[in-house]
């Protein structure tokens, strides 16, 4: 009996690790467009919203979507792109897991005459003819928006602590750069400490606790994503201070939990990083499939939220 249970458990475990298989249907030639999309994974609420947006927009646009989930691994993503090439889909789109190592597989796509669109993340390649366009957020601009709001909404000396995203990640580098650029004009605003909070709540909380103990003059927290900001809120409250009042908080992303904290007054300002790029992507797919020229860099439409705007936007928020 014990053995059977063990065998059953082994099968379950194997099934857990082995999902993410590629779609097997070939592309039909009945006039409908086929899009092969290789997603990074399902690592966050942001990514899930991104996936749902793409699936929904494809359905609405009448585009046949072949979808695969790479589970954060480049080799999985390359494998699914190869299978899309074999299926001879009309357009391939993907969010690259990492920046480098795409030249070979993209060259294969080019030879097969299949246009490629990058979404959300860029690749690092000298040959930009390998893809048609890159549709994604401008992380530097997101940092600038956060900085500009602070410049407009502070008088007197303001000490900022920064919770960075994972060291080396593109959003972390760019959001830091944009923010510094925007506040550099103001002599009152000073970033007094900056540390890696790893884009997680635990990380944000732990770093913020250390900041609160080593600096007693913190006015503003700038977190590179909502989750770290939510962690910081817990740390601020544990220190006996009022988040949003005693220490103001600015974050980037605008996922639901962050928006709720914003509406409740615990966060002061959120810069949106919009995962809902499905519709824009489908328009691009139709354009490149028709052979139209598109610009190499297209930015996702993004906005910012104050506390009042968050309250108004929350009921219709999809993620």
């Amino acid at each position: 009996m014990k053995k059977y249970t063990a065998a059953a458990a082994a099968i379950v475990l194997a099934a857990v690790t082995a999902c993410g298989a590629d779609g097997s249907d070939g592309a039909g030639d009945d006039g409908t467009l086929t899009l092969g999309f290789a997603q990074v994974g399902a690592e966050s609420g942001w990514r899930t919203a991104n996936t749902e947006s793409i699936q929904q927009a494809a359905e609405e646009a009448g585009i046949d979507l072949q979808f695969s989930d790479a589970q954060q691994k480049q080799e999985n993503q390359i494998r699914s792109i190869r299978s899309y090439i074999q299926q001879d889909v009309d357009v391939i789109a993907f969010s690259p897991v990492v920046e480098t190592g795409w030249d070979a597989v993209l060259l294969e796509a080019q030879r097969a005459d299949i246009p490629v669109i990058l979404t959300d993340r860029a690749i690092d390649s000298e040959d930009d003819s390998l893809y048609e366009t890159f549709l994604g957020s401008d992380f530097v601009e997101e940092g600038r928006k956060a900085g500009r709001w602070l410049v407009d909404n502070s008088d007197g000396p303001t000490n900022v602590v920064e919770l960075q995203g994972t060291t080396g990640a593109a959003p972390a580098i760019d959001r830091k750069e944009g923010f510094e650029e925007a506040v550099s004009g103001s002599s009152d605003i000073e970033v007094i400490a900056t540390q890696d909070g790893d884009f997680t709540r635990s990380g944000g909380k732990e770093v913020m606790e250390a900041f609160l103990n080593s600096h007693d003059d913190i006015d503003v927290v700038y977190a590179h994503n909502d989750d770290m900001g939510l962690g910081a809120i817990e740390a601020i409250r544990a220190a006996g201070l009022e988040p949003g009042e005693d220490i103001r908080i600015i974050t980037v992303d605008a996922v639901r939990a962050g928006m709720e904290a914003l509406a409740e007054g615990e966060i002061n300002f959120i810069v949106e990083c919009n995962p809902l790029l499905g519709e824009q992507l489908m328009e691009l797919v139709e354009q490149v499939a028709a052979g139209e020229e598109v610009t190499k860099r297209i930015e996702v439409e993004e906005t910012t939220f104050t506390q009042e705007e968050a309250e108004a936007a929350l009921p219709d928020r999809q993620y």
Partner: peptide
């Protein structure tokens, strides 16, 4: 060690 990195301000890329 982890707390020290945050408290004394070791640069994140050197942490």
């Amino acid at each position: 060690l982890t707390t020290t990195v945050y408290s004394i301000g070791v640069a994140p890329n050197a942490a």
